[in-house]
Amino acid sequence: MAKTSKKPKLPGLVGGLGITFKTMLKGAVTVQYPHEREDPAPRARGVIALKEENCTVCMLCARQCPDWCIYIEGHKEKRPPRREGGRERTVSLLDRFDIDYALCMYCGICVEVCPFDALFWSPEYEYSEPNIAQLLHDKDKLGEWMESVPEPEPLEIGAEVKGK
């Protein structure tokens, strides 16, 4: 393994000029953001999407959130039994599911603890707002993010695929 470059030693001052000159000719790495954009990694924690129908208002996510930026309100409704003769079910219905992205630390604990797969990470990142209050995403907006949630990607060789 080459420990240091074995090139003939130029005076450092000249070598430095050479490097900057070479770089100048090489072309920039800049991505001109509004005109072109980078695709973040599929796992990137851009924004949290809510699949509302999976949510059972169990409040786990809200409780586990380290800075309590998830606001959930719900109510219970009686529903007819699924099968005939069954017991009458109590269904929790979501009234409000807000995530305050001005507070969120993007730690992903909520996504992880959700027992019903109602929360997903989306790599989407373009939701900046001129007004901080608008960073509070309600459940409709969170639901819209579902469209941008990618399929789970394949894993590297040697990984133990979880039995799903």
């Binding site: 000159f21 770089t23 100048m24 090489k26 920039a28 790495v29 800049t30 001109q32």
Partner: peptide, 10 residues
């Protein structure tokens, strides 16, 4: 411009 390109920028 020159400095930017020397620094891999545009």
């Amino acid at each position: 411009k020159m400095m930017s390109h020397m620094q891999s920028r545009l």
